[in-house]
Amino acid sequence: MKGMTTRQLSLMALLTAIALAIHVAEAQIPAPVPIPGVKLGLANIITVYAVFTLGAGPACMILAARILLGSLFAGQAISLLYSLAGGLLCLLAMLPLRKVLTRKQIWVSSVIGAIFHNVGQILVAIVVTGTPAIASYFPVLLLSGIAAGLFTGFAAQALIARMDKRKKQ
């Protein structure tokens, strides 16, 4: 990230805005299962896209901006902690995968990112509530996380494929 072009900056701003819109829209939909932390995480599509097309720095900034603003718009202060911890771990897991995965395996990073996101959520929940018993939600959270990760992963992969095609044209 040496010197940001206007093009890059506006792309990042655009992606942040889209992620934020998805994030806020999703917050309006009632949770599919009444378990705290279970959600589709559609905004993750943008994170995956940013990781694979823009790189670590921009992806990190987009994610941070989306989480901070998203919590401000849609959630409570406490949910910021969960999102930050989850998002950070998710990103840390995704970044090394960038070098390992082919264009057809992008969905894998989303699933593994989701798993680490769940780990972050549970850890914060245990610390915040002081109740290790909450860990009993981990298996259910993990299963739903994998499912959601598969969905957003394939969505992101399709998006990236489309964008690649456009660039070639």
Binding site: A31, I35, P36, Q76, I78, T129, A133, I134, S136, Y137
Partner: peptide, 26 residues
């Protein structure tokens, strides 16, 4: 605002707890 703990409904066994994260209640 999130009402998750209310939607979790009744618990009659120990498989999973009812959690209200905003109030740190389990």
């Amino acid at each position: 605002p999130d009402q998750v703990c209310v939607e979790m409904g009744w618990r009659s066994d120990g498989a999973s707890p009812i959690v209200c994260l905003p109030n740190k209640l389990v």
